[in-house]
Computed example of a mutant assay.
Amino acid sequence: MGFYWPDIHSDAMELTRKCVECQTFSPTQNLPATTLTSIASPWPFFQWGIDIVGPFPEAPGRVKFLIERQIRQQFTSVAHLQANGQTEVTNRTMVNGIKKRLGKAKGNWVEELPSVLWSYRVTPRTSTQETPFSLVYGSEAMLPPELSITSLRVSAFSTEKTEEDLRHNLDLLEERRELASVRQARYKSNTERYYNRRVKGRTFKVGDLVLRKNEVSHAQPRGKLGPTWEGPYKVVEAHRNGAYALETMDDNPIPRTWNIQHLKSFHF
């Protein structure tokens, strides 16, 4: 067109990079920002992971949530599934099981919970190739069908022989747990290797400006045309494993720590 602008491409990229609307409405990033850290337990029941599941439709007794009690709490980053991944996976299995047993009806989910828990405890896990029940008690549970369609364990039952077998299984329990631990370590190593191949690493420093994913904070109604990100915020603390404490531009602290997966750099 007769104009000469030698840096037009770099200038256009810089303008777009600093555009507030472009940054606020940009799509979310699905690639992980930090490597996967596996959690190993030195012995069974050394560490327990819990999470609140719910709210469910209100059941008799005004029950809405699932949780264990009398637990010393150590909180993970908000909406950071990886920080408590084993618990999150278990919870998802529980919820899916309750949904399937209820079907389309919204009945009393509390009554279905024991059956769902039973199913989980007697199903072999991919990582250990053992059932949770057997790793706790040293023997496989007696399944209800074994009572109606007589199995060998039922037909050959004898109190004296059964007690002897149970004691023998308990003697071998430690070896069984060690083999399961080896399988689990191998499974975690493969999972970690696959996950880390997809990592697109990034970090923030104290003083950096960031945007926070809107669907995590629920700060603004999203809707079809709502913003994907909101902010900017200042990073005031950088914790390990990609967790950050934020404050507003007016120096007001934001509750909780936020995972890097839900943050991105803000340019101005």
Rank of each mutant, 00 (worst) to 15 (best):
D171C: 00
D171I: 05
L172Y: 11
L172T: 15
L172I: 08
L172P: 14
L172S: 07
E174Q: 07
E174K: 05
E174C: 02
E174S: 10
E175S: 06
R176H: 11
R177C: 03
R177W: 11
R177V: 06
R177Q: 15
E178T: 13
E178M: 05
E178D: 14
E178I: 05
E178W: 13
L179S: 10
A180Q: 12
A180D: 13
S181I: 01
S181M: 03
Q184N: 15
A185Y: 02
R186V: 01
R186K: 11
R186I: 01
R186W: 13
Y187F: 07
Y187I: 00
S189T: 13
S189L: 01
S189N: 12
T191P: 08
T191A: 01
R193M: 06
R193L: 05
R193S: 09
R193T: 15
Y194E: 10
Y194G: 04
Y194H: 13
N196F: 07
N196E: 14
N196Q: 12
N196M: 05
N196L: 01
R197F: 07
R198C: 07
R198Q: 14
R198P: 12
V199A: 02
V199D: 14
V199M: 05
V199H: 10
V199K: 02
K200A: 09
K200M: 07
K200G: 04
G201Q: 12
G201Y: 14
R202Y: 14
R202T: 15
R202I: 08
R202F: 06
T203D: 10
T203M: 03
T203C: 03
F204K: 05
F204H: 06
V206Q: 10
G207H: 07
D208M: 02
D208P: 08
D208H: 08
D208Q: 06
V210L: 00
V210M: 04
V210T: 00
V210S: 01
V210Y: 04
V210F: 04
L211K: 04
L211M: 09
L211P: 00
L211H: 01
L211Y: 05
R212D: 14
R212F: 12
R212A: 08
R212L: 05
K213G: 09
K213T: 06
K213H: 14
K213L: 05
N214H: 08
N214Y: 10
E215I: 03
E215N: 06
E215C: 00
E215R: 01
